[in-house]
Design a protein around this nucleic acid. Structure first.
Lengths: 340, 340
DNA sequence: ACTCGGAGTTAAAGCGCTTTAAAACCCCGG
DNA sequence: CCGGGGTTTTAAAGCGCTTTAACTCCGAGT
């Protein structure tokens, strides 16, 4: 429990200066092979590991990426995994700062700034564009998962529009016309998907069928919406939900109401979260390729930091529909029959 | 994007020394009211925020707690929330280090050590006792959620034994005798629960009914086990699962096999994760009180750091059964009837 | 008038590491 | 034996902040 060994301890043990030790330990050129060997040996014996805090301070570079996330989101979890992996690969450290009930985005971001992260990656931030722009004036910012119209904020996001459109195409291809949308609430991401639905329906010539049911990005929201749909007259033959969790809630309401999925009604989610692959859910959904998003985001940050990129970058990834078991043709007597 | 303001900048602007500014900013006694006012004002104008990295280095104390977690676990998410809150309250910062596919416990912990966290909280670590003991020789360690028999490791854990026992009592109280257990796999936590089940059954005089079905702590594992149970002869009237996710899988398999829960078979989970409260799941489960665990864990760390506690601490929290909709009396002709 | 004590302020010494400029050394050819 | 050029090594100056000991005032006490 005593102090951990410091650079001097290693240096003293070998009988060289701390400078040499530092050089050896970072693989910098200079020290002779013999010195290297001895230093490495001593370091190993003492179990020495550099103090990041001190290193970061001393070298002007910190090699630290800050990530703001909502730890309760499975999708964020996936992203973080990939971000970690990518950062590890290129020699950056990651510090995580999560939203909690008592800790809003501002606080979470401040915490990252206090660590003097060289860049911050924000997973699905809800802050207004202006605030993000202001932040970007202080430190490189990469927003993941949503648009940011103002300022010098890099963006990596799936083409929500395209994702929803593809899902709609899948449904109309199956013969559906009455396709309702369960909304995701007030967030920026939810808004993009809602817009995608509206546009997609119009483009498909189904403007009159547009029907948006209030909901949010949780199972509860989905359940409420699902009940409404189940009870309502003129039930749609397909439902697209703003995200997977919501879709799961919707389905559950249906199951309880004795409505078969996809027999009587099809359901599509969004995110392809771990939820969706679960055998008992087996949800048709839109995959956002977390790995690719993470890679691009880290890359964007590094380009700013190490390669001097100055101009704004926006990477729009094409999402990919994953067809599973919750979609099928509309029940007989509906859908195509409508074209009477 | 220029350098953020430093202490000297504030000092220069006010016309005092950096020492004064530092004192003011940390609310330390000394500076006069007038100086305070002016410093605070200047700091606000410049948008100054101390560099944690430098602060940590300068004061001998770091006020940093490291938390190792698996970011994909919803229960860990809950714990982290509470740990954050508690740490915030008492002026500690938290740094998170998550396991990933490419980052095992050792790596995750090393990362925390490199940041020179003053103490580390490990959420459900799987490392052998010996390794944890060794770690504890370097830095205060609090293991959350499991026993550690060796070394100076503080432990905060629910009495898994008691939790399982309570659940069993609930089931036997309802009249169940054929109570199977779906196992949680190789982990340390899973082992504790398995043992709890065995002991509880024996104590209830049901030693002969002990039946453990292989599974793991995921939905998939639950589904496999559920299928087995559904298909098997001599089906139990109740199933206790090693955790909630597993229980959800089990239930799903039942639903698909047309077995009613709790009509034909009761199901109990463990964790009271967010999953369990979901309306469509409504799982009877054992609550581990994440908030209390978090508080005790943080407290344990702080006691070591700030109050000089030396001897090992073990806090065993009594879990609490939360009865929801997945348990009920066994179907007629079973259970009590068995006492023929 | 002169010392003393308390309040307020600051110079300066770190914290543990990196980095650079300069010193030390070594090997050769002249 | 000396100087030049290359290779190693190191002294020392930070990084941005904290902290302590010392210092400056100033009014109270004698």
């Amino acid at each position: 429990m005593d102090q951990r060994p410091r650079l001097d301890d290693v240096a003293a043990r070998v009988g060289v200066s701390t400078a040499s030790v530092s050089l050896v330990l970072r693989g910098a050129p200079g020290p002779s092979a013999e010195t290297r060997r001895r230093v490495l040996e001593a370091a190993a014996e003492l179990g020495y590991r550099a103090d990041r805090t001190a290193s970061m301070l001393a070298r002007r570079r910190r090699h630290l990426l800050g990530v703001m996330l909502d730890i309760r989101s499975p999708f964020h979890a996936e992203l973080v995994e990939e971000i970690q992996a990518e950062a590890d690969r290129i020699g950056y450290e990651v510090v995580l700062s999560t939203l909690t009930r008592h800790r809003d985005e501002d606080r979470a971001i401040e915490s990252l700034l206090d660590f003097r992260c060289e860049a911050v990656l924000l997973l699905g931030p809800d802050a207004p564009d202006q605030r993000l722009a202001a932040l970007a004036a202080q430190v490189p910012v990469v927003a993941i998962g949503r648009r940011v119209a103002a300022g010098d904020v890099d963006v990596v996001r799936p083409a929500d529009h395209a994702g929803v459109a593809e899902a709609l195409a899948h449904l109309t291809g199956l013969g559906h016309r009455h396709i309702a949308f369960v909304d995701g609430g007030r967030g920026v991401v939810a808004a993009a998907r809602r817009r995608g639905y509206r546009d997609g329906m119009r483009r498909a010539g189904l403007a009159e069928e547009i029907r948006i049911i209030a909901g949010d990005h949780t199972e509860e929201g989905g359940i409420r919406a699902g009940r409404l749909i189940a009870a309502g007259a003129d039930r749609p033959t397909a439902v697209m939900a703003s995200n997977d969790r919501c879709a799961v809630g919707v389905m559950d309401a249906f199951v309880r109401a004795g409505i078969e999925v996809p027999g009587q009604i099809s359901v599509v989610g969004y995110d392809d979260s771990t939820l969706a692959h679960l055998a008992h859910i087996d949800l048709t959904t839109v995959n956002q390729d977390a790995a690719a998003q993470a890679r691009h985001a880290v890359l964007a940050a590094v380009q700013r930091l190490d390669e001097g990129r100055e101009q704004r970058l926006e990477v729009v990834l094409n999402p990919r529909l994953v067809v599973r078991g919750t979609t099928g043709p509309p029940p007989r007597g509906e859908g195509p029959a409508d074209a009477s």
